[in-house]
Design a protein around this nucleic acid. Structure first.
Length: 596
DNA sequence: AAAGTAACATGAAGCACAGGTTTT
DNA sequence: AAAACCTGTGCTTCATGTTACTTT
């Protein structure tokens, strides 16, 4: 048992912190005046950004197209940017109102459209190698990578859907980033904005998403979710993954509570989340004097269609498979999670959904935060597109694949000229069935990194993530030593490459990662071959309507469950479990790390 | 017919409490 | 003996997808 008082107090502290940092704000806050009003109890006036928009372009009262990865902005839709400082999203000189579509959207419509490398992207990598330490100056650009990108890609392949409800529904996968390249002493606000990704209303017909008229532009309500730890120092943001797991999506425009945690969307519209990093003064007031201090990052693979009920059963199954809160709907839950560890091909999820998404690995030590956010290969044992999977083989779950599954992807922003960087592949909005991931996944100076939060640092000694967070890295190292080597899912090197912490082998390791990436790409294209089966649509109407099997079956007995728990608990050293309490908040998270 | 809503079952953590054990 | 700590239990809360019903 872990329930010490320290844990409780830590949890309480975390709760307090949460309350402190994200008090409820009014519902239809509008414009920049209220932009940060819910944060830190600060009055809206403190954050009022007078004419931040007009200072550059009066037309920017709506979100403009920006070649760096903006989103669709319908004429007259003045909502989104009004809540933002638009230093990063103002249109470039060549802005054309007729091009109100995100590059990704354009790609989706025009497969041949390629975007040139963005200015600055080319230097991003060099920056990446240099930035991240205390020497990082304010002019340096941040690099961001999507921690759970493989999982996002899995969903993206099927067109991600996100449930929206009146009371608000969390995103899954949720947004989780790592940031490098910030000035460790400067203060930043970090927030996510969700904007329309295209001008269409969508409908799910015949097993696929088709456009259905124009999007409703009159969307109202909050579109911004400010990370509850904002404002905070660059060191803080770079120390750990920045998770937006508490972010909720709603279709309730009139919601009057929890506004700070809710983003109001419209059903059957496609949206694109964007990450904003804004340098602020120590008290959280934004400095609008320099656009350099505002950076925006867009990950096309995080696009999603808001729905009130899942349309695509593939998405439903992915959610069930990966979201620990949906464990109860896993029809082969028992067989999957009660088997002996040695028989298990995939890491079982943490028993705690919360721990799963908050703890940096109480059991699967090497896994980063929010393990279930990462592809765990589980669906490979399942049957998307109504195809019962062949028995899982080890080849599907090679360490190499596991490494790939934990890849993360750096993105650098392009703030000058006011553009949001289209981060990863714009081709992502091509139907993934096109394949071509091998090229599109590594575009424009975006470097793929296969790293799990901990050992990745040893993989990439030159990475800013190595130096950016001495604490994180050192903690990770300490953490790493606690990994029970017998755990089958313990992150480990591929047999071929071997795992080495020796810096001299980092390069070879990097090459290995590239190969791993290719392996993943290959697996995608292969899987999509089946997805393109001409019987797909037909199968949708029959076998795809998967129903949850009764949990009262023969395999479902308490003993099996308990044995699973015993297995897991015995797998983790008792001392470890005591040292790593299931973190219920960042407070205990920190306390744990502060006391290795 | 399609979309939206609310109730529901499920799984898991948080929490309070009681009782037992260990330490001082 | 008292205090601190540990353990087990049961209730509450939360998040999930499903389902039936209502609304558009």
């Amino acid at each position: 048992m872990l329930g010490g008082e320290g844990e409780s107090s830590a949890y309480s502290a975390a709760k307090e912190e949460e309350k402190r940092t994200s008090p409820a704000a009014d519902g239809d806050e509008s414009a920049a005046g209220n932009r940060y009003s819910e944060q830190q109890g600060m009055g809206s006036d403190r954050y009022y950004v007078p004419h931040a928009i007009s200072k550059q372009n009066p037309e920017a009262s709506f979100l403009p197209y920006t070649p760096g990865g903006a989103v669709y902005s319908p004429p007259g839709a003045g909502r989104y940017p009004s809540s933002l400082h638009l230093g990063s999203v103002l249109p470039p000189a060549g802005y054309s109102p007729s091009a109100h579509f995100s590059p990704s959207y354009q790609h989706g419509q025009n497969l041949g459209c390629l975007y040139p490398p963005y200015a600055g992207s080319g230097s991003a990598l060099s920056n990446m190698a240099l930035a991240g330490g205390a020497g990082a100056g304010p002019g340096l650009r941040a690099q961001v990578y999507l921690c759970n990108r493989p999982l996002w890609l899995k969903f993206h392949r099927h067109q991600t859907e996100m449930i929206i409800t009146k009371q608000g529904r969390r995103m899954f996968p949720f947004l989780s980033f790592n940031i490098a390249g910030l000035n460790v002493t400067s203060h930043y606000n970090v927030f996510v904005e969700v904007v329309l990704a295209d001008p269409n209303h969508w409908r799910f017909q015949g097993g696929k998403w088709v456009t259905c008229g124009k999007a409703d532009n009159s969307s109202q309500g909050n579109k911004v979710y400010i990370h509850p730890e904002s404002p905070n120092t660059g060191a803080h943001w770079m120390r750990q993954e920045i998770s937006f797991s508490k972010l909720k999506l709603t279709n309730n425009k009139g919601t009057s509570h929890n506004t700070s945690q809710m983003i109001v969307l419209q059903s059957l519209h496609k949206y694109q989340p964007r990450l904003h990093i804004v340098e602020v003064s120590e008290d959280g007031v934004e400095d609008i004097s320099s656009d350099v201090k505002t950076q925006c990052f867009t990950f096309p693979e995080t696009q999603f269609i808001a729905v009130t009920a899942y349309q695509n059963t593939d998405i439903t199954q992915l959610k069930i498979d990966h979201n620990p809160f949906a464990k109860g709907f896993r029809d082969n839950y028992d067989s999957m999670y009660t088997a002996p560890e040695s028989d298990r091909l995939t890491p079982s999820p943490n028993d705690s959904p919360r721990a799963h998404q908050i703890v940096p690995g109480t059991r699967y030590t090497m896994q980063p935060l929010f393990q279930d956010q990462f592809v765990n290969n589980l669906p490979q044992n399942r049957f998307y597109n109504c195809e019962r999977a062949v028995p899982q083989t080890n080849s599907l779950l090679s360490p190499q694949t596991e490494d790939v599954a934990s890849q993360r992807w750096f993105v650098t922003s392009v703030q000058q000229g006011g553009s949001c960087t289209m981060s990863a592949s714009n081709k992502l909005d091509l139907t993934p069935y096109e394949g071509e991931y091998s090229g599109s996944l590594l575009p424009y100076g975006i470097k793929s990194l296969s790293m799990q939060t901990t050992h990745a640092l040893s993989y990439y000694p030159d990475s800013p993530f190595t130096t950016m967070s001495a604490g994180w890295g050192s903690r990770a190292a300490a953490y790493q030593r606690k990994v029970p080597p017998s755990l089958p899912w313990s992150p480990r090197p591929s047999p071929a490459a071997g795992f080495s912490e020796e810096p001299g082998k980092a390069k070879a390791q990097t090459e290995e990662e590239v190969h791993s990436t290719e392996a993943l790409i290959s697996s995608w294209t292969e899987s999509q071959t089946s997805a393109l089966s001409p019987n797909k649509a037909e199968s949708y109407s029959v076998a795809c309507k998967r129903r949850r099997l009764s949990l009262n079956g023969p395999s479902t007995d308490s003993s099996s469950v308990s044995s699973k728990c015993e297995d897991l608990s015995s797998a983790a050293p008792s001392s470890y479990s005591k040292e790593a309490p299931p973190t219920k908040g960042m407070a205990s998270y920190y306390s744990f790390y502060a006391n290795p």
